[in-house]
Amino acid sequence: MAGQEQQQPQPRDTEVEEEVPVPPAPAEGQASASTQGVDDLLDEIDGVLESNAEEFVRAFVQKGGQ
């Protein structure tokens, strides 16, 4: 069956051919930049999280699924 692979351009063609550098290029020293990044991220998430955590989590009740 070799040679019968599909050749249509598809998003699969965009898959990485080599490893993507991760995380994308912090300019400063790796460790401190990483810690700083986490602090920034938490600050951002603080502003995004629903207020009333306890009530919000308690109210998320689902019916059965597969």
Binding site: D39, V48, L49, A53, V57
Partner: peptide
């Protein structure tokens, strides 16, 4: 990584509702 960040910054226990909210959100 987010959950551990909160635990370290705010001293949260695993049963804290904010960690449950992070998981959900």
């Amino acid at each position: 990584s987010i959950l551990e960040g909160y635990r370290q910054r705010d001293g949260l226990q695993w049963d804290d509702a904010r960690l449950g909210l992070v998981d959900l959100q």
